[in-house]
């Protein structure tokens, strides 16, 4: 499908927010991702997965991404009016649960973007939201204001240049003092692993995973992550179609 870029600007060091509009309405849920061709030519064949960050309605969305390599650099050169070849949103997003009153959102770095629309959806349902978001340093902090519109936000930086010093896991115990019903986490694998082990058996929740993708539509088996099913058997599951969001207890970190 073709999306037209509405605007794009740098919102933190090397982090861009790209707003885009689909040529027709699409269904979506928070936690899903767009699979984007950064260029129509043959040089960059594979699409780049970027999480849905904000949905204004069924056609207007934003993604927030960090410059990593040639693909994201190419994307960052695009501007208003340029068209993008986009699939999605794809995958299974964050499930929302009836009857939840408090939710704990945990994000690290470019794991923060998918939490923004999640926070909005939770808030619309009257759920009170606490977001713990961690970054390396003050220049990397992003989307704190957007999250603050939906609840409380605790910022952490590893060097203490903004918010508290330390990693998100350091603030977890305090975040549980007013007990949430559920947590939702997205970020680098070491963070997810630490969150999983700190909260296992104490709080149900979800982890949103990242893997390198070939197709994004479930046919290549490129994006697998080891998961444990309820019977205790482990097997590879596809992040693109069976995830990217998985119940925290099912995810196995090696």
């Amino acid at each position: 499908m073709r999306f037209r870029i509405v605007d794009q600007r740098e919102i933190a060091r090397n982090v861009f927010r790209l707003r885009m509009e689909a040529d027709r309405p699409v269904g979506w849920s928070p936690g899903q991702f767009f699979h984007i061709r950064v260029d129509d030519g043959l040089e960059h064949l594979l699409r780049r997965p970027l999480s849905l960050c904000e949905a204004e309605d069924d056609r207007r969305f934003s993604v927030v991404y960090r410059l990593v390599g040639p693909g994201t650099r190419r994307l960052a050169r695009k501007g208003p009016g340029d068209e993008l070849d986009v699939l999605g949103p794809l995958g299974r997003g964050f499930p929302l649960h009836e009857g939840d009153h408090r939710a704990l959102l945990i994000g690290g770095g470019v794991g923060v973007p998918p939490l923004v629309q999640l926070a909005r959806e939770l808030r619309k349902r009257g759920v009170s939201v606490l977001s713990l978001i961690g970054f390396r340093t003050a220049e990397d902090v992003m989307l704190a204001e957007e999250l603050a519109e939906c609840g409380s936000v605790w910022i952490l930086t590893e060097d203490g240049t903004a918010g508290r010093r330390g990693r998100v896991t350091a603030a977890l115990e305090e975040a549980l003092e007013e007990p949430p019903d559920r947590f939702y986490a997205c970020g680098p694998a070491p963070m997810l692993r630490a969150v999983q082990s700190a909260l296992a058996g104490r709080l149900p929740g979800y982890l949103s995973l990242e893997e390198r993708m070939g197709c994004g539509i479930g046919v290549c088996m490129g994006c697998v992550h080891l998961c444990r099913d309820p019977e205790g058997r482990t097997r590879y599951r596809r992040v693109c179609t069976e995830g990217p969001v998985f119940p925290a207890e099912e995810v196995v970190f090696s």
Binding site: E43, M221, G222, V224, Y236
Partner: peptide, 30 residues
């Protein structure tokens, strides 16, 4: 997809990488 006698879980990740006008894969017959 390739079919083997027993189920196969395939190789560890990363299994795919982009290359100029192409890609590398090492799915491992999952």
């Amino acid at each position: 997809k390739a079919t083997t006698l027993e189920p196969r879980s395939g190789n560890p990740v990363p299994r795919v990488a982009e290359t100029p006008a192409g890609m590398l894969n090492a799915i491992g017959l999952q």
